[in-house]
Design a protein around this nucleic acid. Structure first.
Lengths: 223, 223
DNA sequence: TAGATTGTTAATCGATTAACAATC
DNA sequence: TAGATTGTTAATCGATTAACAATC
């Protein structure tokens, strides 16, 4: 459900004011971050919006506009310093907060997420796993022990967990979300294909894996 | 890269013409399908756009507009017949083609996808798994044997596979995509976080799991 | 019939792309 | 300096929401 951000028509010209950033822009930031990291790995020092655009399949003006909404990171006539821009984009995304995350539901998907190395490389700390199955509780996945979901609230507080990742079957997902909210997490990343409801103060991102496959079916049906 | 569909300004009024359907509309169709199935399970015969909207968090006029772009499925003053609409939406999505799918890369994520029951319930047939690791080749995941990736082209043709699901490490993903294209698949569902390139005749949907977590970080950093 | 709800056109809103002055 | 490239405003494009006639 799109949260309507009140829009400011009369914003002053050059003050350090927080303009409203579009969701589309925010969704592109992680892609800029990754591409900058790859460029860094290639030893590139300076990159233009045109080159970034070529690598990502975006128009250069879109990239410039996205970045400019957070500050003036480039040098006219030159481009962007890769290291500096990467650090800035990472900081905008809050990756340097090194959030503590937990996964709830250690089935096939939960276990795969627990082993996903990209989260580590983005700076997230996997600090807890939870399941309800006595056969799974006590096991270790990627060096983290699976805890009884009964202990969720206690451990979320103890380990200062800010983000909960829900990978339980649909029927239990809303209940787990409610528990996470009560335990005090600030964000939920949900993989259950349901319309999840959380208080407006909690940030929710839902992944729906069956959308992609279904839309693929739609397209190949028509070709 | 958005494929520009030539737009028809001068479309005739009431003929069975295929108007251009927006990507946003297509992405919502799988959600309609799922919600209709749930309503069906609840024994509901007739549903209004308002009720569908409440269940999904969409405006009813958006749902009516989406559906109306494919035909007149509702009854004025009454609503939509759940069974009939679900059948129609499923057919629009091409789910009744029961596409044959294969997963390439049977690591944690690939194995999780191989076990994902929602694909089965959407009518997809998982008919092949591929890996490159001799320790994985020959194993059975969800009743399907893992084949040597060397045999990809042969098996894709033999088993009439239309959709390839890529779950290999980023470094190998483009190469696998190229092989799938050569083998004759019509669509690729990619989980590697790269900018994948395929011919314009091949449909590509990429899932990028780190976007969701990064944008969550963005939002909780700012609250 | 009266009330309800669709299908569709018009109005609004938001996001992308184009253009160009500023400046390195 | 001349050439290149940013940052930003304006124009365009596309998607959502509002309004309402049609009709069950």
């Amino acid at each position: 459900m799109p949260v309507k951000t009140p829009k400011r028509r009369t914003r002053s010209k050059q003050s350090a004011d927080k303009a409203v950033i579009s969701k589309a822009t925010i969704d592109r930031l992680p892609l800029y971050f990754r591409t900058l990291r790859l460029a860094q790995d290639e030893g590139i020092d300076i990159i233009s919006s045109e080159d970034l655009g070529r690598r990502l399949g975006f128009m250069p003006e879109q990239i410039r506009k996205d970045l400019a909404s957070f500050g003036q990171f480039g040098k006219k006539g030159v481009g962007y310093y890769v290291n500096e821009l990467k650090r800035n984009v990472g900081s905008i995304l809050g990756l340097d907060n090194h959030w503590n995350i937990a996964i709830i539901g250690i089935g096939h998907l939960g276990a795969a997420l627990a082993n996903y190395q990209n989260f580590v490389s983005l700076g997230f700390n996997l600090v807890a796993l939870f399941d309800q199955d006595p056969n799974v509780i006590g096991q270790t996945v990627n060096h983290v022990k699976v805890e009884d979901i009964q202990r969720l609230k206690k451990i979320v507080k103890e380990r200062n967990i800010q983000i909960g990742i829900i990978a339980v079957p649909s029927a239990f997902a809303q209940g787990v979300a409610d528990q996470l909210v009560e335990a005090g997490v600030r964000g939920i990343w949900n993989f259950a294909p349901i319309k999840m409801r959380v208080p407006s103060s909690i940030h929710l991102v839902s992944e729906d894996l069956s959308i992609g496959l279904s839309t693929l079916s739609y397209h190949i049906t028509r070709m």
